[in-house]
Simulated assay, not measured.
Amino acid sequence: MSGSELDEFLRQRPRLFALAYRMLGSASEAEDAVQETYLRWAAAETDGIRSAEAWLTTVTVNLCRSWLVSARARRESYVGPWLPEPVPTPDTDLGPLETAQQRELVSLALLAALERLNPVERAVFVLREAFGYPHREIAAMLELSEANSQQIHSRASVRVREGRGRFEVSVERARELLERFLAAAGEGDVAGLRALLAADVVATSDGGGVVSAARRPVTGVDKVSAFLLGLLRRAPAGFTLEAAEVNGSAGLLARVDGAVYVVVAPEFGEFPDGPRLVSLSFVLNPAKLGRFR
């Protein structure tokens, strides 16, 4: 590999990681996909490649499509709920996160919703929504017709965003609400905590069978508020809870003696009486916390 070819790969690398992460929902697997793309680039006859970006993107997205087939089988045998691997932002190469749509496309809630799609649907959705590729180019990458790419995108968009109309709270407002949440939780203020939760709020915990975690989602304001207060009562010595940016939005880090052991990604919805928490994702599986350590 020549120096110019290596430079070209390094220039494309952040975008390839951002693509692979959205495809796989895992930062560690995304790194592996990018590494495999590099090995194929190093072995390729690049003289005949007209566009390095198109070639590298095609290889990465099709690697991810193949990996998603085996990943789905692994996730079916996963102990308890499976959640995507969270990443700290803006320090991670996920691309621009300046608009509400850009932030939504890396939220844990939307990445989890992408699990409803098959690998081709997920590829079309990510390439179109997150990277703005025209359907003509998507069709060429995935060996589809342009009309088929358009149909797949339309169908995937409906399935992914079904029931997500309430998620419109700004980052600044979410941070303010999290401060109130932290204050209520720290004081054991049940009424204050309940006032921040939607009636049908859902708390989902991912321990992967490695650490103790709820094996089923906890649903409803009564059960979730009791669940949260129970967690705080059982917190070990040296426990702290702090605000942080997680996947482009406001989140929480739970630490014990300074080490992160839970990442919490909340989702807020706008209601007639003001914004409330509609979901809380607790990632406890140590294998998914590497980016926060």
Results as ranks from 00 to 15, higher is better:
5 E>Y: 11
159 R>M: 10
286 P>W: 05
103 R>E: 00
122 R>W: 06
7 D>M: 14
266 P>H: 14
59 V>T: 15
128 R>T: 04
144 L>H: 07
107 S>L: 05
229 L>H: 12
226 A>D: 14
219 T>P: 02
240 T>L: 08
10 L>K: 15
275 P>A: 03
247 N>G: 10
87 V>H: 02
169 V>G: 10
276 R>W: 01
224 V>W: 02
36 E>C: 07
237 A>C: 04
169 V>E: 05
134 P>M: 04
259 A>L: 07
152 I>A: 04
72 R>Y: 02
46 T>C: 13
194 R>G: 05
4 S>I: 14
40 R>T: 05
173 R>F: 04
158 V>G: 11
270 E>G: 00
196 L>W: 09
289 L>N: 04
269 G>C: 02
7 D>V: 14
263 V>I: 01
141 M>F: 11
125 F>W: 13
241 L>R: 14
281 S>Y: 10
35 Q>N: 15
201 V>L: 03
253 L>Q: 08
140 A>T: 08
236 P>H: 07
205 S>T: 06
213 A>N: 10
205 S>E: 14
287 A>M: 13
169 V>I: 09
189 D>C: 14
266 P>V: 09
57 T>H: 12
289 L>C: 01
51 S>W: 00
95 G>L: 01
153 H>R: 04
218 V>R: 12
86 P>S: 00
156 A>V: 13
162 E>K: 13
122 R>K: 12
54 A>M: 12
260 V>D: 03
111 L>I: 10
8 E>H: 08
149 S>P: 00
8 E>P: 06
180 R>N: 07
57 T>G: 03
172 E>W: 06
192 G>W: 05
292 F>H: 06
250 A>T: 00
31 E>G: 12
181 F>G: 08
203 A>D: 03
68 L>A: 03
132 G>F: 07
67 W>C: 00
102 Q>F: 11
232 L>N: 06
92 T>C: 12
261 Y>P: 01
210 V>S: 05
75 R>H: 10
158 V>H: 15
82 W>P: 01
188 G>H: 06
273 D>T: 11
94 L>P: 01
162 E>Q: 11
131 F>D: 08
207 G>H: 02
35 Q>P: 07
